[in-house]
Design a protein around this nucleic acid. Structure first.
Lengths: 166, 166
DNA sequence: ATTTATGCAAATCCTTTGCAAATCT
DNA sequence: AGATTTGCAAAGGATTTGCATAAAT
């Protein structure tokens, strides 16, 4: 086979859990049962979730000792600080998604079914650079969400009487 | 003079207050003292504000009869429905800005001083169209915020010891 | 042995609601 | 008059905090 063109290996060298433990150490924080459980569970699937989703999920994880609500909140923040998660605010609640080892992307948010769909574009980088030039604004990140109706919901709508638009 | 090439006159024909009253009527709602006061005060200056900002501002407006907190919240929602205001969520609180008669734009948010700076680009429209094509996602709007440091804060930072970065 | 984390309960923050009294049309 | 609004107080929902106890280094 061809040469190893793997991506910069730093990026995925450590598992999320290892990366988190490294972060914790660097801050003099401790590696606890519950922090371990949370990182592991969060990185088992690539979903968008909020604190409550995670809490009810953990309730179903038998080998997991009871993890309290405050601890979930506290750990989620730490994971954001650690660069493992990104958070965004959707209608009052904070929604999280993987950041570590996951490519930069933006979202479409379906207002009907509440689904979040990811997409990518490099336009945003260009716009950001332009802003740095024009406004001397140091861009550290961005959040872009298109709102509207996803393909599924558009179809459902079409099948429905027009009356409920009001 | 040349022919009347004015923009669609609907757009700025009515003052915010008139536009709001029109909206209220169309919904069988009433034009009350407090709704009048709120529209007027909100459209006196072009600022970004949240419910609390407005409430404390109103407290200083003598000719304004006392307007209660719930009424402010209720009216702000109505103004969003009426297309007079846009709302966005910034760190847990809802921030409002003029929408009616105001050009489409996006924001930079300084994480240090919390300032919101507006900018415009037509790239977003293009991206939106591309999404409709590729994902059959019906775009009804978007929210784009670049986060980072504004020019002012970058300067301050430079003048400060590095220690407070922690 | 120390120090940091956890869980509990209670507190906070922002926003919304129920309802009787006040205000519009 | 008759309906919608208001203000008040209280409720709500998400997230955070104080503190004694449990767990990590």
């Amino acid at each position: 086979m061809a040469q190893d063109f793997s991506l910069p290996s730093v990026r995925v060298a450590l598992s999320p859990r290892e990366r988190f433990e490294e972060f914790l150490q660097s801050r003099g924080k401790r590696t606890t049962q519950q922090r371990r459980i949370i990182v592991d569970e969060v990185f088992k699937r690539h979903d968008h979730f909020d604190a409550d989703d995670l809490i009810s999920h953990l309730a179903g994880v038998s080998e997991a000792r009871r993890v309290s609500r405050p601890t979930v909140y506290r750990t989620l923040s730490e994971m954001v600080d650690a660069g493992l998660l990104r958070s965004m605010n959707l209608g009052g609640r904070t929604v999280y998604e993987h950041d570590y080892g996951y490519p930069q992307h933006d979202h479409m948010h379906c207002q009907k079914c509440n689904k979040l769909i990811e997409f990518s574009t490099d336009e945003l980088t260009k716009i950001g650079e332009e802003l740095e030039r024009q406004y001397q604004f140091r861009v550290t990140g961005h959040r872009l969400i298109f709102t509207g109706l996803c393909a599924d919901c558009r179809n459902q709508k079409r099948r429905t009487r027009k009356l409920d638009l009001v």
